[in-house]
């Protein structure tokens, strides 16, 4: 299994790069319109939708949105999580206690429900949804990082370095951060994949982003044509599944190695 993680990651990166390379820069308005409901063929490998737009291009644009949502949520969650985790692990006991109780509180918030409310109230911008997910899902990472920091703190070399006058923050930067990748990876995979799924879910409930094509919106738009234009929903479904499976597998494999 040791080669699975890089393989999955590589596959994922290749897939996304390929899709991004295909996606025209100008957003959905740049898609030329041809005949609607063309089945997959040489000119349009994924067929065309009800407005005559190329589905391959649409799926590629969806990749852009999904990646954006996943990355923004992930960046926010890891940033906050590492900050809180290191501060709790290295700081005084009172700070540790306060931060961990705050973490408990945030961990008990109904994340997806809040995302639904925000989307319903403020118009379902994909970035806004990513923001909500990032601001609420950092708790797992914070706990992991804190545990790792505490372990480090107990090591003899750490105490020795402290005694030699090395600041704890500098130590954390030198000795802790390089290791965090492996610790955080599986949780990061869950957050990344979860954000993509959450965005797709919101799009299904009618709370998608009107300015961005996303896989979830494409699936929702393909629903009325379930019977006679399978290509309108099958390709975005495949894209979502492939991405989240690859992310999960990569995370799973990374966990085994870590």
């Amino acid at each position: 299994m040791s080669r699975a993680a890089p393989a999955c990651l590589l596959g994922l990166v290749l897939l996304l790069v390929l899709l991004l390379a295909l996606a025209p820069a100008g957003g959905i308005q740049a898609l030329p319109m041809t005949r609607p409901f063309l089945p997959p063929g040489a000119a349009h490998p994924f067929g065309t939708d009800d407005l005559g737009r190329d589905m391959l291009m649409a799926v590629a644009q969806g990749a852009r949105t999904s990646l954006l949502v996943g990355l923004v949520a992930l960046a926010l969650a890891s940033g906050l999580g590492i900050l809180v985790g290191v501060a709790a692990g290295l700081g005084p006991v009172a700070l540790d206690e306060a931060l961990m109780r705050a973490t408990d509180v945030v961990a008990s918030l109904p994340t997806l429900l809040l995302a639904v409310l925000v989307a319903a109230f403020f118009g379902g911008s994909a970035l806004l949804v990513a923001l909500v997910l990032g601001l609420t899902r950092w708790t797992v990472i914070a706990r992991l990082v804190r545990a790792e920091t505490l372990t480090l703190r107990r090591l003899p070399f750490f105490r020795a370095a402290l005694a030699l006058g090395c600041g704890p923050w500098r130590l954390a930067r030198r000795h802790l951060l390089p290791q965090l990748g492996a610790v955080v990876a599986p949780a990061a995979g869950v957050i990344f994949g979860g954000a993509i799924l959450a965005e797709a879910t919101l799009a299904f409930v009618g709370l998608g982003d009107p300015e961005r094509t996303s896989w979830g919106r494409l699936i929702a738009a393909g629903y009325p044509f379930l019977d006679d234009a399978w290509w309108m929903w099958a390709f975005p479904v495949a894209a979502i599944c492939l991405t989240t499976v690859l992310v999960a597998l990569a995370g799973d494999a990374a966990a085994r190695e870590g």
Partner: peptide
């Protein structure tokens, strides 16, 4: 590994699908 892939796929499917 096939089992892992299957489980991961089931986990990755959006609920509405």
């Amino acid at each position: 590994r096939a089992a892992v892939a299957t489980f991961a796929l089931v986990q990755a499917l959006p609920v509405y699908l």
